[in-house]
Simulated assay, not measured.
Amino acid sequence: MAYLKPDFFERDVLTVARDLIGVELEWQGCSGIIVETEAYAVEGDLACHTASRPSARDFVLKQPPGTAYVYLNYGMYWLFNLLVKGGNKDGLVLIRALEPKRGIELMQQRRNKLKPNELCSGPGKLGRALGITGDHHGTIMAGRGRPAQCGLHLPSGPVSVLADVRVGISQAVDYPWRFLAADHPHVSVPHGKVKLPLVKPPSPLM
């Protein structure tokens, strides 16, 4: 099975985030079908790390497309993203959920869960199930330099994809930049079920 090449990630971040649905993510003896992603744009997206973190902007500038951007969320969960650059809109794609395929017993041990739909149905769960840590930040996932047993494979057939708002953010909350495999039991939040935070209106001028 052929691996994705860097040019897959040299397109608009929204296109890449949608097209990653159905792709198989292989990671050090484990694998799963990507069933949920979120796109974050380098420019004009306050929810993207590049809006507030110079290190993220430096990462986008210096790393090749398809590189893993891994960060610690809430001091507990390592989240796995892929760098997209070279198209109309550069950005990062968060891999939110997988349908486990290989290495399921190892995922079950890491997560202390048995049901397949509980192993990778969220970005923090996914990171723990695959054994991803901060040491994997900067891993090249496409092209020259890609480690053995790591990579992404094209889907074997067409996938029905839905768009929805992103989860758990407080900025740019209404962007429909989350993509899901339609009616899939392994997604983190079903389509149409995200609760948007209350946004306070600006204070009136005195």
Score class of each variant (00 low, 15 high):
Thr50Pro: 09
Ala51Thr: 01
Pro54Val: 09
Pro54Phe: 10
Pro54Met: 03
Pro54Ser: 07
Pro54Gln: 07
Pro54Glu: 06
Pro54Arg: 11
Ser55Tyr: 11
Ser55Pro: 09
Ser55Asp: 11
Ala56Ser: 10
Arg57Ser: 11
Arg57Cys: 06
Arg57Asn: 14
Arg57Pro: 06
Asp58Trp: 07
Phe59Leu: 10
Leu61Ile: 09
Leu61Met: 13
Pro64Met: 09
Pro64His: 04
Pro64Val: 14
Pro65Leu: 04
Gly66Ala: 12
Thr67Asp: 04
Thr67His: 01
Ala68Gly: 10
Ala68Trp: 00
Ala68Asp: 01
Ala68Cys: 12
Tyr69Val: 11
Tyr69Thr: 02
Tyr69Ala: 03
Val70Cys: 15
Tyr71Pro: 14
Tyr71Gln: 12
Leu72Thr: 05
Asn73Tyr: 04
Asn73Trp: 11
Met76Leu: 14
Met76His: 14
Tyr77Glu: 13
Trp78Ala: 10
Trp78Leu: 11
Phe80Glu: 04
Phe80Leu: 15
Phe80Arg: 07
Phe80Lys: 03
Asn81Ile: 00
Leu82Val: 02
Val84His: 05
Val84Met: 11
Val84Lys: 06
Lys85Phe: 12
Lys85Trp: 14
Gly86Gln: 07
Gly86Ile: 08
Gly87Cys: 09
Asn88Pro: 08
Lys89Pro: 01
Lys89Ile: 10
Asp90Ile: 08
Asp90Val: 08
Gly91Thr: 04
Gly91Leu: 08
Gly91His: 11
Leu92Pro: 06
Leu92Ile: 03
Leu92Arg: 02
Val93Glu: 06
Ile95Val: 13
Ile95Asp: 03
Arg96Met: 03
Arg96Glu: 08
Arg96Thr: 05
Ala97Phe: 01
Leu98Arg: 08
Leu98Pro: 11
Glu99Arg: 08
Glu99Asn: 07
Pro100Cys: 06
Pro100Thr: 03
Pro100Asp: 03
Lys101Gln: 13
Lys101Phe: 03
Arg102Val: 12
Gly103Leu: 03
Ile104Phe: 00
Ile104His: 00
Ile104Ser: 00
Glu105Phe: 01
Leu106Glu: 14
Leu106Gly: 02
Met107Val: 01
Met107Gln: 05
Gln109His: 13
Arg110Met: 03
Arg110Leu: 01
Arg111Tyr: 10
Asn112Met: 15
Asn112Gln: 15
Asn112Cys: 09
Leu114Val: 15
Leu114Asp: 10
Leu114Trp: 11
Leu114Met: 15
Leu114Gly: 04
Lys115His: 08
Pro116Lys: 06
Pro116Met: 07
Pro116Glu: 09
Pro116Asp: 08
Pro116Gln: 06
Asn117Ser: 12
Asn117Asp: 14
Asn117Cys: 11
Glu118Trp: 05
Leu119His: 01
Leu119Met: 01
Cys120Leu: 01
Ser121Met: 01
Pro123Asn: 15
Pro123Asp: 12
Gly124Tyr: 11
Gly127Leu: 04
Gly127Ser: 13
Gly127Arg: 09
Gly127Met: 07
Arg128Asn: 10
Arg128Met: 10
Ala129Phe: 04
Ala129Arg: 12
Ala129Glu: 06
Leu130Lys: 13
Gly131Phe: 05
Thr133Pro: 13
Gly134Gln: 01
Asp135Gln: 12
His136Phe: 07
His136Trp: 02
